[in-house]
């Protein structure tokens, strides 16, 4: 792992914060294929970490291990001091603190936008319906689509759906937000509206881990960028370091292909 001055400075800035996500030697196998090879990383509270890398590099697998949508076979994952084990109670606790936004939005098509957002607060957080609804409307306002509350997901554009999905995750008042390629399934003209919402979120101080190919977004808001390939973290650094002075050949190759 290579650390230059800027990265050192960023690490200093983050050093006195609490650890939010700690991964130590995480291994993940699909049959004989090893998708994650000893991934070790720490994400601090309030940090915006962008994970990038070529497809098949294991970045989605890793982010999905963090709220146990995938089960890791080796190593430890600790989220906000809770270790991810087979204990259902720990999994439930972590899932209610970690929000996740998917590539395919995964909104519930049979529920209105408002019901999509209020479902978990009402049934998991046990909030009264009125309170949950007013919070949902405030969140819709925040993501810029307050007028769509009564519609069904199928009646919205892709960008609007993804913003509803973000609002749905935020409704649980999570401490960590995971984004799994949130703009990859969107038409080009809708990417910006989703990225704008994510930027606003990043500035609000929530811990974010974002798997994305949007290098502009990474350069603008990431505290650190992690580059993965072949199931390993190849290079970690600030955007400045990453884009102007990458040390690893594989990073350079990736950047030359994508930029």
């Amino acid at each position: 792992m290579n650390i230059d001055d800027a990265t050192a400075a960023a690490n200093d800035r983050l050093a006195d914060r609490d650890d939010m996500i700690v991964c130590v030697d995480v291994d993940k196998f699909y049959g004989d294929f090893q998708a994650l090879k000893g991934v070790t990383a720490t994400i601090k509270e309030g940090e915006v970490a962008v994970v990038c890398g070529p497809s098949g590099s294991g970045k989605s697998t890793w982010i999905r291990c963090i709220n146990r949508l995938e089960v890791h076979q080796g190593g430890d994952i600790v989220v906000d001091g809770i270790e991810l084990t087979n204990d259902l109670r720990n999994i439930e606790k972590i899932r209610s603190e970690v929000g996740m936004v998917f590539q395919q939005f995964n909104l519930f098509p049979h529920l209105t936008v408002l019901d999509n957002i209020t479902l978990a607060p009402i049934w998991v957080r046990k909030k009264p319906r009125g309170e949950a609804e007013s919070m949902a409307r405030a969140l819709l306002e925040r993501v810029g689509i307050p007028e769509q509350a009564e519609k069904f997901p199928g009646q919205l554009s892709g960008g609007q759906q993804q913003r509803v999905a973000i609002a749905r995750s935020l409704a649980m008042e999570p401490r960590v937000m995971l984004f799994d390629e949130p703009t990859s399934a969107l038409d080009p003209e809708m990417i910006k509206e989703v990225l704008d919402v994510m930027k606003e979120l990043a500035h609000s101080g929530i811990t974010m881990m974002v798997v994305t190919h949007e290098m502009g977004f990474a350069r603008e808001v990431a505290d650190r960028i992690m580059f993965m390939e072949g199931g390993e973290i190849v290079e970690v650094g600030t955007p400045e370091h990453f884009f102007t002075n990458p040390t690893e050949d594989r990073t350079k190759l990736f950047l030359s292909q994508i930029l």
């Binding site: 709220n67 209610s96 996740m100 519930f108 998991v124």
Partner: peptide
């Protein structure tokens, strides 16, 4: 599968 994952991710039992 996405529906199951989304339901899990928002913490439903």
């Amino acid at each position: 599968k996405g529906q199951y994952e989304a339901a899990d991710a928002i913490g439903l039992t």
